[in-house]
Design a protein around this nucleic acid. Structure first.
Lengths: 349, 349
DNA sequence: TTGAAAGCGCTAACAA
DNA sequence: TTGTTAGCGCTTTCAA
């Protein structure tokens, strides 16, 4: 290789192979090399071959920061997930990421649930990257952040909940419906005295209210509610059952705001010699993979997290590429998976 | 606002507020505005105030693609995690992300574990973003990917394992040591006949080998190994215990390659009326939060995943900022957490 | 089908 | 302390 093949690099260059290098090697203009790489059917077969060869030889990897800057398309999607390691969201993030990847998009991960100040910084960090779309776990209440996001003009998909007034797109399900339907499900089975074990969470709140209302409508005794606060651990579930047993009597079924809490309730029940479902029935939320194979298997509410991720990815990509997204609000629903932790035999005849 | 305050935008502009707009509003040059924002103590208080005011008024958020391109520093870190949603890694990712965020870095997430072709694309996608560092879950064996990464010159930290020949930095622990020490731990307690339930995974492989060797060195009977393949589910654990009971007899203790598998073994044992640890002892791996509060509580191997994430973030940032990283290899170790699933009373006197 | 020119929005380098 | 200039590496625009 002679000297003139090695262009002098300015002091500022990062030193990496650039499109210019590839173009020179292939004997074409940079823009032609760009076309050969990005829109191969816009160039002649001969040019295509030469450019591909040059790419191979040099190990060229296009700089997406430069591309994004020039085209105003970053091919980056930002996802915001709660900072608590809740695996129920990870299924969604995985399918989101996987679908995005197949279309040439990358995922940037941000964690919410810290201080308000940090949320503000997170939003800045996200907008600063000029992502082509933003995935939100949950819905954003009116406020500074919402206004800011709206102003940014970046396509947003809110998830995991339903509201008539989304920022932009929405893929979720109704927590009120869940609360009501779980209550109805249990009442149909003949249960009459209920407790709820819930975490401090706005969505759990709505499930709880709807559950209570449905029970009240049937003239049954009020529901005993234990709020375990931010701690969604198995231990909290155990402690919650202790409180239920200490402060009430005759509770027949417990609806928990997560499978892990339900597992805690079942664990404590067993430790105390109570049988599930005979002495007390338990319903979880989330259907994490392993609860189907426990003994007894857990009756729970199943959300198709994978579907949420895939749909969100498709919507975001469609928006990024200027295609219309119909409809803006998608209700993916839920299902109550009936297993052994609620008494099958007790069903009213 | 008069017309001259609204600079004509070229057709190519993204339309967003730019540094130029802010600078004009503040009555300074763009570079001065840049300094006021990035290195505030390099400008006079008066300029600082005017620029901050302009930023406030316009809602300006710097374009990091442009900044990254100009400075060759993306302030982006790429993390590669296995595609299986294993919560044991999420703890690490969370602390990694959190630490990075505090220093103004963002996390890009890539999923490995698909096809070789997709791994290749993932590497391209990562390098294309010019991240300031790469976090790898696991170590990268010699091969095309490793060579490519090395050639890219991007700082890399491999984790969750130990090797004398890391690509660059390494933060992990010895799987052989774990296998050996768990075997010794169980032998000290008087157990003599062992089984291992493991997933198809190179690290589990090494734990298994070391466990076997340690047992063999004590002249005890060979270890019965069940390989559950890629399926790390609770169900696999249950099936594994069935195989153990069907194909062997007298197994006293089972070492599982994940807590979930251990939970499966315990579940199946209970379903069959076997008592843990009296009839069979169980040891897990990972110490996911809830196994401490189960009945019986699970004896398991604890890895400080949070520490790995934090250290990795610090090392990567140090490298990105040109500071030396000492030492290149960090062994964070592990601990065997003794709980009820191994018989405390059986300890040799 | 190919290319020249002109940016995208920012910062490094140098100068005043 | 502030500003001018010249890029970073790519793509849009327009022209051939």
């Amino acid at each position: 290789m002679t000297d003139k093949d090695t262009p002098k690099r300015s002091r500022r260059s990062s030193g990496a192979i650039t499109l210019r290098d590839v173009a020179m090697l292939a004997g074409v203009a940079p823009i032609t090399a760009s076309r050969a790489i990005n829109t191969p059917n816009q160039v002649s077969p001969d040019v295509l071959r030469k450019v591909q060869e040059a790419v191979q030889r040099t190990g060229y990897v296009p700089n997406r920061m430069a591309g994004g800057l020039a085209s105003s398309r970053s091919r980056l999607i930002a996802a915001v997930v709660p900072s608590t390691v809740v695996s129920v969201f990870m299924e969604t993030i995985e399918s989101l990421n996987s679908t995005l990847f197949d279309d040439g998009y990358q995922l940037m991960l941000g964690q919410s649930g810290y201080s308000a100040e940090r949320e503000e910084l997170l939003l800045e960090a996200i907008i600063g990257r000029r992502p082509d779309g933003i995935f939100l776990t949950g819905i954003l209440p009116p406020g500074k952040a919402r206004t800011r996001l709206l102003a940014s003009g970046i396509p947003v998909v809110e998830t995991w909940d339903l509201t008539p007034t989304p920022i932009d797109m929405l893929i979720g399900f109704s927590h009120s419906d869940i609360g009501r339907e779980v209550a109805q499900f249990l009442m149909r089975k003949g249960y009459k005295k209920f407790a709820i074990v819930r975490a401090e969470d706005e969505r759990a709140d709505r499930r709880t209210s709807a559950f209570r209302d449905a029970v009240a409508q049937h003239g049954l005794p009020p529901v005993f509610v234990v709020n375990v606060g931010a701690s969604r651990s198995l231990k909290s579930g155990r402690e919650a059952l202790n409180r239920i047993l200490a402060e009430t009597s005759g509770i027949e079924a417990v609806f928990c705001s997560s499978d892990l809490l339900a597992l805690g309730v079942m664990t404590e029940a067993r430790a105390r010699g109570l049988r599930v479902p005979d002495d007390i029935a338990v319903v979880g939320f989330g259907d994490v993979p392993f609860v189907a194979d426990m003994v007894p298997a857990l009756t729970t509410v199943r959300i198709n997290g994978e579907q949420i991720g895939t749909l969100a990815a498709r919507s975001l990509i469609a928006r990024a590429e200027g295609r219309p997204v119909e409809p803006g609000i998608v209700d993916v629903g839920f299902s109550i998976i009936e297993r052994e932790s609620t008494n099958l035999a007790k069903t009213l005849g």
